[in-house]
Design a protein around this nucleic acid. Sequence first.
DNA 1: TCGCTTTCGCTACGAGTCGTAGCGTAACTG
DNA 2: CAGTTACGCTACGACTCGTAGCGAAAGCGA
Lengths: 224, 224
Amino acid sequence: MKWLTAIFLLAGMVASMRSHPRRAPARTGRPRSAEADAAILGATRAALVELGWSRLTLGDVATRAGVAKTTVYRRWSGKSELVVDAVAELFDELELPDRGSLAADIEGVVLQFAALLERPEARTALMAVVAESTTDVPLRERIRVSIVDRQKRLVLEGRARARARGELPVETDPVTAARAADLIFDMIAGAVVHRALVSCEPVDRHWVGRFTAVLLGGLGAAES
Amino acid sequence: MKWLTAIFLLAGMVASMRSHPRRAPARTGRPRSAEADAAILGATRAALVELGWSRLTLGDVATRAGVAKTTVYRRWSGKSELVVDAVAELFDELELPDRGSLAADIEGVVLQFAALLERPEARTALMAVVAESTTDVPLRERIRVSIVDRQKRLVLEGRARARARGELPVETDPVTAARAADLIFDMIAGAVVHRALVSCEPVDRHWVGRFTAVLLGGLGAAES
DNA sequence: TCGCTTTCGCTACGAGTCGTAGCGTAACTG
DNA sequence: CAGTTACGCTACGACTCGTAGCGAAAGCGA
């Protein structure tokens, strides 16, 4: 059973790096119900849709999920942590299908991101947990690990493809390349979020097209 | 009493266009204390610094301001509305000093905006009220009028200066020009907010320089 | 100066949420 | 089977919410 232990330890590490505050599962005793986890996270998203962030209570989530309130508190230390995990699953749905050019790839992922931000649970949860994270350092780290850094993969993959196509010069200094990726990530994610949630204007194809044109034009002018 | 209804409707429109939910001041009776207004808004900012958004309570604000809790509730309908007004005053401090070029103007206002986002009360309040506004349409309109649209003036003024300098072509279609201004506003504000509050990385001169280079390069490539 | 009107500070209230503790039971391990 | 952990349930004190009622204070018009 050594391999099983190893798998559980690994799962625990992944879980702690990933989403849940779950301890490494005990090798003895009653195991935690995986169905309860899924039910709680789903109930959290449903409650976010109906109530928004401020009116969401953990007691209500427990009732919706069909579990006891204490079960929720055993797994998550508070509302913020629970909501981060609930919406992190949504962000993992983002993909970067190869559309043949850097511009098309960017437009594709931006439209996906915009569609995600159309969902009420994503809109309210994302801003709320970021607000909480400004006065809660562990939560900030949790958001970074569970959501932000995980989505930077889209930028890195898109740029790698573009280099393979010859649309971007081969990277010289890895530090410079990382800085450029961070800048692009902030510009894309920030502009889309601001357009959708602050300006409250639609992120449609016309806007995405103009945005992508400015971004790529700027990259071409700056990197040359 | 038809004229009375009309007066109240007009007063409501004026109040909703500016900041406070304050009714038209009655010409008779004891007037509302202006010192109390300032004390409450100041106490709100102080409480935001110490407690953040979620732990801030209106009862605590009232105590800090030296007024009764009922006085706060007479003037603001809830936490969100109060906080919007409290932080809107901060945003009005942003200026656009003429630095001689469009690039320098942008870098200057971005650094000012970044300095504003360094303040804990602005960080936590801005994200929190945007989160609440996703499930509260009147609040969304209040944010737009009190904060967002008021700061678009910076973009419009910067572009007007650049056109006067010959850095930008003279505007042809006003609709196109408005779209461009909105796009630039979302890109600047979004990127800075995302960099500062989501990525949690410093908005320093190096980053601002690279950001401005990409943005202006893109505008030059897109508008030509 | 005297009413009239509105705001003020204060107290109190029911309703609701929070996070925790205790208990008996269920589930899994060796 | 014994040992260990998770579960559902109930109950709890502490806190916040938003409102109501009261008497006093402050300004306005006659």
